[in-house]
Computed example of a mutant assay.
Amino acid sequence: MHSIKDIAKLAKVSPSTVANVIHGRRDRVSGETFEKVRRILEEQRYVSNMGARLMASRGSCLIALVLAYQNERRTSIVQDPFVSSVIAAVETEVQRKGYFLMLYSNPDMEECRKMALAWNVEGVIVLGCKRQGYYTLREQLDVPIVTIDTCFQEEDRDFVNVGLCDYEGGKEMTSYLLQRGHRRIGFLSREEGRDHFDPQFIDSARYLGYLAAYEEWGQRPEECWALDLSRNPKRRREQFMKLQQKNFFGCTALFLTSDLLALEFLGFCRDRGISVPDELSIAGFDGIREGERYRPALTTVCQDMREKGTRAVRELLRLLRREKERELPRRDIRLPVCIMERETVEDCGGNPYFGEEPGPSKKSAFA
Rank of each mutant, 00 (worst) to 15 (best):
E155N: 13
E155Q: 15
D158I: 12
D158Y: 10
D158F: 11
V160A: 15
N161M: 07
C165D: 11
D166I: 14
D166L: 11
D166Q: 14
D166Y: 14
Y167F: 15
Y167L: 14
Y167W: 15
E168R: 14
G169H: 13
G169R: 07
G170S: 15
K171Q: 15
M173L: 11
M173W: 06
T174S: 12
L177A: 07
L177D: 03
L178V: 08
R180G: 03
R180H: 15
H182D: 02
R183F: 00
R183V: 03
R184Y: 01
R184A: 01
I185N: 05
G186L: 07
F187E: 04
S189H: 09
S189P: 02
R190T: 03
R190K: 06
R190E: 12
E191V: 15
G193A: 09
R194P: 06
D195P: 05
F197I: 12
P199Y: 10
S204R: 14
S204A: 13
R206C: 01
Y207C: 10
Y207P: 08
L208G: 05
L208Q: 12
G209N: 00
G209P: 02
Y210W: 02
L211A: 02
L211D: 14
E215L: 12
E216S: 08
G218L: 12
G218H: 13
Q219I: 00
R220E: 13
R220F: 00
R220M: 14
R220A: 08
E223M: 11
C224R: 03
W225Y: 08
A226V: 09
L227N: 01
D228K: 03
D228Y: 06
L229K: 04
N232Q: 07
P233M: 02
K234M: 01
R235C: 03
R236P: 02
R237M: 10
K242R: 14
K242Q: 15
Q244L: 09
Q245C: 11
K246V: 02
N247G: 08
N247T: 10
N247P: 05
F248M: 08
F248I: 10
F248P: 01
G250P: 01
T252S: 14
A253K: 05
A253F: 04
L254S: 00
F255W: 15
S258I: 03
S258Y: 03
D259K: 02
D259Q: 07
L260Y: 04
L261V: 04
L261Q: 01
L261M: 01
A262D: 00
A262L: 13
E264H: 07
G267R: 10
D271H: 14
R272N: 09
P277G: 07
P277V: 11
E279G: 09
L280W: 05
S281H: 03
S281D: 15
I282N: 00
A283L: 13
F285Q: 08
G287D: 13
G287P: 08
I288D: 00
E290M: 10
G291I: 01
R293T: 12
Y294N: 10
R295S: 13
P296Y: 01
P296H: 02
V301E: 02
C302L: 07
C302E: 02
Q303P: 13
Q303R: 15
